[in-house]
């Protein structure tokens, strides 16, 4: 049914990703397909790395650890952005196409009043991506 899953991850807030990670791992085992963890970083030093390479290294370690613990095949995909907060969604949609992922599993917050004014990341990705998108509420 699916051939590859992409899971967008925010390495700075791993504690908020539990559900989407578990869900993606279950699906990966079920369909016997790999999971690619996609992370977006800015060019300036950030919480998750002083340089884009360091960020990529951390993302690779994260992917490997997930593979180890969940017993699934994993990979990582680091994306550099000039303005990560704003470009996040478009970059993720493009990444899914580049990776060849046909299922995106992402963590989404419970909607609040702000979502009427600023659309949520999950909402935009679902609107724009060609792949199937599963928004897991945290």
């Amino acid at each position: 049914m699916f051939s590859k899953i992409m899971v967008p991850v925010d390495l700075a807030h791993q504690d908020k990703l539990t559900k989407s990670l578990e869900c993606a791992a279950e699906l990966a085992r079920h369909f016997d397909i790999p999971v690619v963890y996609a992370g977006v970083t800015g060019t300036a030093p950030g919480v998750t790395g002083h340089t884009p390479e360091e960020f990529t290294r951390h993302l690779a370690e994260f992917a490997a650890a997930q593979g180890e613990s969940a017993g699934i095949s994993t990979a990582h995909h680091a994306i550099i952005s000039h303005d990560p907060r704003v470009e996040l969604d478009a970059k993720l949609v493009r990444a899914a196409e580049e990776i060849g992922a046909d299922l995106i599993v992402l963590e989404g917050h419970v909607p609040n009043v702000l979502d009427h004014f600023l659309p949520s990341d999950g909402g935009i990705v679902a609107k724009l991506a060609k792949a199937t998108v599963m928004v897991v509420r945290n």
């Binding site: 790999p34 690619v36 996609a38 002083h50 340089t51 884009p52 390479e53 990529t56 690779a60 992917a63 490997a64 593979g67 180890e68 095949s73 994993t74 990979a75 990582h76 995909h77 680091a78 994306i79 550099i80 970059k91 990444a95 580049e98 990776i99």
Partner: peptide, 20 residues
């Protein structure tokens, strides 16, 4: 196990710098 690598989104390693 991290057996698939995709790195299209990031430029190749940016070379040596003296990180403090």
């Amino acid at each position: 196990m991290s057996d698939v690598t995709t790195d299209q989104g990031i430029p190749e390693p940016e070379g040596h710098t003296e990180v403090i």
